[in-house]
């Protein structure tokens, strides 16, 4: 009686999960095995998945996404660690930095569309402040968003500017959990300054670092808004990320079957990466 009562209480949650989570997942899986281009479902088995392997545009978006992912995460971690050390130093010197923390967090509070537009204006060749400075120094204008390499770099830097505070906050929170006694002991052994960070802080922050990397990978696989506003994937396909292409295939071409197949490939990729990093994190714990 008590057992069935529990199931009765769980019913709303299960119903919600089925309707909002499982059904769309199963429906998109069903779509991935069908062709919907002609307006009706036709079973095509694995054709959509094989198409992905031959789709040069999709493979390019994967390359672009991974490039952005590696560059962004690397830069964010460097900034995160650098700022953590700086904040630790300021704290040690007894300098108040409440305002600094607030300012550091400002970018992450902005909507991504606003971030994209703001950077588009900043990088504009004619009215952007960066080009104002460049031309006032006697150099030629730089059209950041119209050259493939600089456009990709712009997307990377804009994303870093937006999300670096997350790495800073996470790493600094991790740092504050390290007992001060360890540093005192290390100091007795002669490890101070950079050496204490090299042999103490970074190893003890490893789990936080792995977690930050894991979360950022998940997030960057879904990178869309900033690219959509800043470059729309251009020039050419130089900044076209996988989610933008997925959106175009699904909502511009209305090729729902192929769009679903792309989504599943990205999902599988995401699961593999997250499993690897989760194991890394768990391994550290053991």
């Amino acid at each position: 009686m008590a057992r069935s009562y529990k199931y009765f209480l769980l019913m709303p949650a299960i119903a919600y999960l089925l309707v909002m989570g499982i059904f769309p997942l199963l429906f998109s899986l069903h779509a991935a095995f069908h062709s919907t281009v002609a307006g009706e479902y036709q079973f095509v088995f694995l054709r959509n998945f094989f198409r992905i392997l031959e789709d040069a545009r999709f493979l390019n978006t994967l390359r672009v996404t991974i490039t952005i992912m590696i560059a962004v995460i690397a830069i964010e971690l460097l900034i995160g660690l650098g700022m953590t050390f700086l904040l630790a130093y300021l704290k040690m010197k007894g300098i108040t930095y409440t305002l600094t923390q607030v300012v550091l967090l400002l970018p992450i509070m902005m909507p991504p569309i606003v971030v994209g537009y703001t950077w588009r204006l900043i990088l504009d060749p004619f009215i952007g402040p960066i080009n104002e400075i460049i031309t006032s120094m006697g150099f030629s204008r730089v059209t950041f968003l119209t050259i493939p390499n600089t456009a990709l770099l712009s997307v990377i830097l804009c994303t870093v500017w937006y999300w670096a505070p997350f790495a800073i906050v996470s790493l600094y929170a991790g740092f504050r959990n390290i007992p001060e006694e360890l540093y005192e002991a290390a100091a007795v052994d002669g490890a101070t300054g950079w050496r204490s960070h090299r042999y103490l802080t970074i190893p003890l922050l490893k789990q936080v670092i792995v977690t930050v990397i894991l979360l950022r990978i998940m997030d960057l696989l879904k990178l869309f808004d900033i690219v959509f506003v800043l470059t729309s994937g251009g020039p050419g396909t130089s900044t076209e990320v996988v989610t933008l292409y997925n959106y175009i295939v699904g909502f511009k071409y209305f090729d729902t079957g192929y769009a679903s197949a792309i989504s599943y490939i990205v999902l599988i990729f995401s699961i593999v990466i997250s499993t690897i990093f989760s194991r890394l994190a768990m391994g550290e714990k053991k």
Binding site: V37, R57, T146, I147, P148, G234, P235, G236, T237, S238, I248, K252, Y253, F254
Partner: peptide
């Protein structure tokens, strides 16, 4: 699907302009 025809050609031409 006229939009799709236009879009795919636009992307390819844009790739030419971008030197890709």
């Amino acid at each position: 699907s006229a939009f799709r025809f236009y879009e795919t050609l636009s992307v390819q031409i844009s790739n030419v302009f971008a030197g890709l």
